[in-house]
């Protein structure tokens, strides 16, 4: 017996609303992309043209939201819209023709947050992590420390600046630079 989608709606809805507004959301926001969804997103983004299609679609849907609405929690909207678009993409590129049935919908809705990997996914994730490690290893030591402390260990930027004896400005500069370096070296293949 799987969870019924209806009960998930209520539960999810309540919890979603129950969360406070504007409190350090961005730090949490990228956790939206976990498990299957994150792997799928990365795979789509790695293909340049797919990434453009995806971004274009998300962009067009974002335009229809009023600014007031978006400004409250912009990143939540971006991720939510991206999630919807990804679900549609995933369906439309499926090998088998899909006929509507409520069970499939419920299953797909549950599939994304799942943590288990298929052997194929596990392999591709393994090799991706290896590539990521290699890219990170090429960063200058200071830059790498700043990046990993902030991203992997959630160390506040001020604390990083203090521990490494650099300015807050430098911490931020290193962060942006490192992330872009990863993006360049992992991006469109």
């Amino acid at each position: 017996m799987g969870t019924r989608p209806e009960s998930r709606v209520q539960e999810g809805d309540r919890e979603y609303r129950g969360r406070g507004q504007g409190s350090g959301l961005a730090a949490l926001a990228f956790e939206h992309f976990r498990g299957g969804l994150q792997r799928y997103l990365v795979r789509r983004l790695r293909n340049g043209e797919d990434a453009q299609d995806l971004a274009q679609e998300v962009y067009l849907r974002l335009l229809r939201f009023g600014d007031e609405e978006l400004v409250r929690r912009p990143e939540s909207y971006v991720y939510r819209v991206a999630f919807n678009v990804l679900c549609e993409f995933k369906l439309s590129t499926g090998r088998d023709p899909v006929a509507f049935d409520s069970e499939t919908v419920a299953r797909l809705a549950e599939e994304f947050p799942a943590e288990e990997l298929s052997p194929e996914d596990a392999w591709s994730q393994g090799s991706r992590q290896q590539r990521l490690d290699a890219v990170l290893a090429r960063l200058p030591a200071m830059q790498r420390a700043v990046f990993l402390l902030a991203v992997r260990h959630d160390v506040p930027h001020e604390k990083i600046a203090h521990e490494l004896g650099v300015s807050l400005h430098t911490v931020r500069k290193y962060l942006y630079r490192s992330l872009h370096y990863c993006r360049q070296n992992l991006g469109h293949e």
């Binding site: 979603y16 999630f83 809705a109 994304f112």
Partner: peptide, 12 residues
């Protein structure tokens, strides 16, 4: 958040 997101996708 992941739970809420999973649910929001259904209408799409």
């Amino acid at each position: 958040v992941a739970l809420a997101l999973g649910v929001l996708a259904v209408p799409a």
